[in-house]
Amino acid sequence: MSRHHRLASAAAVLCLAGLSTSAIADNGEVNVYTYRETKLVQPLFAAFTKETGIKVNVVSASSGLEQRMKAEGANSPADVLLTVDIGRIDEAVQAGVTQPIKSEVIDKIVPAQYRDPDGQWAGISMRARVIYASKDRVKQDSITYEELADPKWKGKICIRSGQHIYNNALFAAYVAKHGEAKAEEWLRGVKANLAQKPSGGDRETARDVAAGKCDLGIGNTYYWALMMNGDPDKKPWAEATRVILPTFADGGTHVNLSGVLLAKHAPNKANGIKLIEWLAGEQAQQMYADINYEYPVRSGVTLNPTIAGYGQLKADPMPIAKIARSRKAASTLVDKVGFDN
């Protein structure tokens, strides 16, 4: 009895799933594989559909999408891949599942530093990796990444795992700037300054600073804004801290990209390019700034007030592609110095 029920409901699921895929060949659609959470990109896609009449189909995952595209091969339904980090961008390009985005619009809007010279990917929004400093205990208003290894911060820094993609990208930028030997020395210095074993996420880092476990936390710009504006429980964590935009001694603040790539076998290539160009357009860029608390790649877009309150972002000029190539060295160094131990 109940088995029949279950069978029936399972069959219905399959039918539903079948319905959603059977229309793939239609011209009025674009299929997006995304590392960005659906809930975050859904408002953007809804606006895109409203404006263009092109339906957006989505599947989101945390890792492995390029492996799926590779296995799907020429029959892959994917048109566009969205990522949250330069690491994932790099992986997709390495896996050979992309094709150049040939678009004058993108070349014009996105600064050269934030797109691939060969056109394999383009950055669409940015976040900076910054300091959450205790309001009570930290007096200085500026700080360099290099300074984080200074013994004066001994026992005063909190950070999540050194292997997390955000830290991996920051450390890779350090390697790209100063070379492996210097980076190793720096990582050992930062490790010696940690108040506790790396764990938790960027929100917990802010919480630890607020609770007095440490004076400096390292986190992304939008987490702080989300705590400040989104969640009454977490607001005190943000309120006990302030954001300092750190810089490299001879450069600017480390930024990471959410990027967009065009699938090699995109069945709806024209719609895919339309979506990519739309994401770099004014409306989408404004939504990235307002809803997601990110920095737009397009100039002339008004920042969210909380983000603007951090001060003028002076992004480091190091090309993102060069940082991506140092990720492996950074990951290796983290293990070598026992950063997470």
């Binding site: 659906t38 989101s60 999408l65 799926r68």
Partner: peptide, 18 residues
């Protein structure tokens, strides 16, 4: 997450979105 079809979410993947 990795194997589901386009536009299909389950409760677990729905939690993950946040």
């Amino acid at each position: 997450l990795l194997l589901r079809p386009l536009n299909v979410e389950t409760l677990a993947t729905s939690i993950y979105q946040y």
